[in-house]
Amino acid sequence: MNVADSKRCFGHRLSRCWLFALLLAGPCWADWRPALPDGRLLGSGDFTWFGVSLYTARLWSPGMPMTWDQPFALELVYHRALSRDALVEASLKEMRRMAKARPDEPTLQRWSSEMRDAFVDVRPGMRITGLYHPGKGCTFFVDGQLRRRVEDPAFARAFFDIWLDPRTRDKELRQRLLGMAGPAE
């Protein structure tokens, strides 16, 4: 083996070692944590629809009980493949349903556009994390990578109300997220 072949072989081995190390490290999912340095897990639970587990939700907050005047993070780890369009439409449907005063069409169009930019088609194991910024808006991360900042406090509140408002569809999940229920059996 000549010197050039030896260097090429070493380069291939080094590349495989880096790839192996990256695979061992697992997915990067904590990049939002510096924005919530005192955040701790308040609660978690699974969301199921007609017996099918769609995702596991986790709520992170610096204080307990969670309040709307402090930042928090809601992390969703998906168990099923879902399209971006399905995520956006389901979110808009719930935001409309729960609104005290129905948002006008231009607002709903803007919110739809923000979510289309923030979300992706998800596969099992993928994470979307929303970080709530009181009075400012929210930030979305997909598998730990910054995806979109939304500087709209009304959107942020309406979005997180889907899980945290007392009128949510899954009241048991809300209780678990807020640390007001025991662990799931």
Rank of each mutant, 00 (worst) to 15 (best):
residue 67 T to V: 09
residue 60 W to Y: 15
residue 70 Q to N: 12
residue 78 Y to E: 12
residue 69 D to W: 11
residue 66 M to Y: 01
residue 73 A to C: 08
residue 59 L to T: 02
residue 76 L to D: 15
residue 82 L to Y: 01
residue 62 P to V: 06
residue 75 E to P: 08
residue 86 A to R: 08
residue 69 D to I: 02
residue 80 R to C: 11
residue 82 L to E: 02
residue 65 P to T: 11
residue 67 T to K: 04
residue 63 G to K: 00
residue 77 V to A: 04
residue 61 S to E: 03
residue 59 L to P: 11
residue 70 Q to R: 11
residue 65 P to K: 08
residue 73 A to M: 02
residue 69 D to L: 07
residue 77 V to P: 00
residue 57 A to D: 03
residue 82 L to W: 02
residue 56 T to H: 09
residue 68 W to L: 15
residue 62 P to H: 04
residue 87 L to E: 15
residue 85 D to Y: 13
residue 62 P to E: 15
residue 63 G to H: 01
residue 76 L to K: 00
residue 64 M to T: 11
residue 58 R to S: 14
residue 80 R to S: 13
residue 60 W to I: 04
residue 68 W to D: 15
residue 80 R to F: 11
residue 65 P to F: 07
residue 87 L to Y: 15
residue 56 T to M: 06
residue 78 Y to I: 10
residue 59 L to G: 02
residue 81 A to K: 04
residue 80 R to N: 12
residue 75 E to S: 12
residue 72 F to E: 09
residue 61 S to N: 10
residue 57 A to I: 00
residue 58 R to K: 11
residue 74 L to H: 06
residue 87 L to S: 08
residue 74 L to R: 00
residue 68 W to Q: 08
residue 76 L to P: 11
residue 60 W to S: 08
residue 64 M to C: 12
residue 76 L to C: 09
residue 88 V to C: 08
residue 88 V to Y: 12
residue 71 P to M: 09
residue 79 H to M: 10
residue 61 S to V: 03
residue 79 H to T: 11
residue 73 A to L: 05
residue 84 R to M: 14
residue 80 R to W: 15
residue 87 L to G: 07
residue 74 L to E: 15
residue 79 H to A: 14
residue 68 W to T: 13
residue 70 Q to M: 10
residue 56 T to S: 10
residue 66 M to D: 10
residue 81 A to P: 14
residue 78 Y to M: 07
residue 67 T to P: 14
residue 72 F to K: 00
residue 83 S to L: 06
residue 61 S to F: 03
residue 63 G to D: 08
residue 77 V to H: 05
residue 66 M to C: 05
residue 73 A to Y: 05
residue 58 R to M: 04
residue 77 V to L: 06
residue 68 W to M: 14
residue 65 P to S: 11
residue 60 W to H: 12
residue 72 F to G: 01
residue 82 L to R: 00
residue 88 V to I: 12
residue 76 L to G: 02
residue 78 Y to D: 13
residue 70 Q to P: 14
residue 83 S to R: 06
residue 66 M to L: 07
residue 75 E to R: 02
residue 66 M to N: 09
residue 65 P to W: 09
residue 85 D to F: 06
residue 60 W to E: 07
residue 61 S to M: 02
residue 70 Q to V: 07
residue 68 W to C: 07
residue 79 H to I: 05
residue 57 A to K: 00
residue 87 L to W: 14
residue 80 R to G: 08
residue 71 P to S: 12
residue 64 M to R: 12
residue 83 S to V: 02
residue 70 Q to I: 02
residue 81 A to M: 09
residue 77 V to D: 04
residue 82 L to S: 00
residue 59 L to N: 01
residue 75 E to V: 02
residue 82 L to V: 05
residue 77 V to G: 03
residue 71 P to R: 04
residue 82 L to K: 00
